[in-house]
Design a binder for these strands. Sequence first.
RNA 1: GUGGCUGUAGCUCAGUUGGCAGAGCACCGGGUUGUGGUCCCGGUUGUCGUGGGUUCAAUUCCCAUCAGUCACCCCA
Length: 442
Amino acid sequence: MSKPTPISGFPEWTPAQRMIEQHVLERIRDTFERYGFAPLETRAVEPLDQLLRKGETSKEVYLLRRLQADPDGPAGDDALGLHFDLTVPFARYVLENAGKLQFPFRRYQIQKVWRGERPQEGRYREFLQADIDIVDRDTLAPHHEAEMPLVIGDALRSLPIPPVRIQVNNRKICEGFYRGVGISDPEAALRAVDKLDKIGPARVADLLTATAGATEAQAKAVLALAEISAPDASFADAVNALGVSHPLLDEGLAELVQVMQTAAEHAPGLCVADLRIARGLDYYTGTVYETQLIGYERLGSICSGGRYDNLASAGAVAFPGVGISIGVTRLLGLLFGAGALTISRPVPTCVVVAVTSEAQRAVSNRVAEALRARGICTEVAPSAAKFGKQIRYAERRGIPYVWFPGTDEGADEVKDIRTGAQVSARAEVWQPPAADLRPVVS
RNA sequence: GUGGCUGUAGCUCAGUUGGCAGAGCACCGGGUUGUGGUCCCGGUUGUCGUGGGUUCAAUUCCCAUCAGUCACCCCA
């Protein structure tokens, strides 16, 4: 039996990293609930036709198959696949349960998702997303699109991570503009523009003429739009100055102005209107978001989403929505890789109770019980080794306190092994400083 | 999924033009007979990613595979 090896794209963290992850998830969850989003979990699998409803992600969907399944059997639309995001399952859930839900429906969902892509730093095949969405029946007020970045801004600012910049665009602006200048294939144009940062304007212009059927003048106009970026609503003037008009363009401009104005009031500096942002899944129809970790821009967006009008519809009833999702695994992977996220100790334990002798272990157990009853994470030393060894057991794990049960008449004593200070104490009342109670993430 | 680069101890890395595998840090034991960290002495780190092939002999050369990473694709 050879040594097991990792599976590409399926990260497994250390306990210290998992504690950091749990801390991060707790803060994110707290923020989501503070904005009134209700928790939801959906199953890991969806029927394939649900997953593929929206286009060309088929190759990255993992299929679920029984070992004993008939290999020649139909693997059609009713086959099951692991979900590759949380928005599509959510849309399905809304349709399925519309009768029980109150609209507008606000929910958050923090779950694993799976994508069969080639892994590299910050890109995994199994990863955790923390997603919020708001859906309404028939129509969804545009102000919800302005709320998304505020929630995310609060959530991410509650974490010990570098500041973020949320880049916002609106697909109606791009599409309306492209139509306004007469581009035949707006989607190809979007894809080309999206590469602006990577390959530069000259090659994007080439791409535009090659794949989107643009003339030189059209490519120039498209690039001029893509290069517009502003920390406030002034982007609209810049767009208007280009002299293109189209109803869809005006609609998009009005919506993005509202997002930017709201952001400017509640979270100055958080959002940037960036008209080159095109990304996200292809079901987005309005506002789109992408998020850069400042200092880690090269490694991609750690949080993105947008408005979708057609994802959930059943017959005549439509449920337009808007959502955004934090790529928790990517965020953590990047920061772990950079050594930028640490925790003060790799175990929750605050106190190790020393064991004087195996015959006296019950005494130590009683001390531990008294401490735990008051919320102090406590373990009893694994063996009645020499006290030096027991102290070292704590030291190796970063556990700050070792408790020595008193012998005979002598009182119990607790030692802060960082300072060496040792004082007599009673398990019923002793309290560590608040900063030592739990591991601190920074 | 396509292509490039990389893979030696827990970590950071040496090394062999093919000849029984090394250093520092970390870890373990002792000095220190029940209070760690400093210091001194000693010890173990290992299927040289894995599996084949060539060879008297492979960690070294060849092939495949796995993993990591980069680019493409796409995206959190």
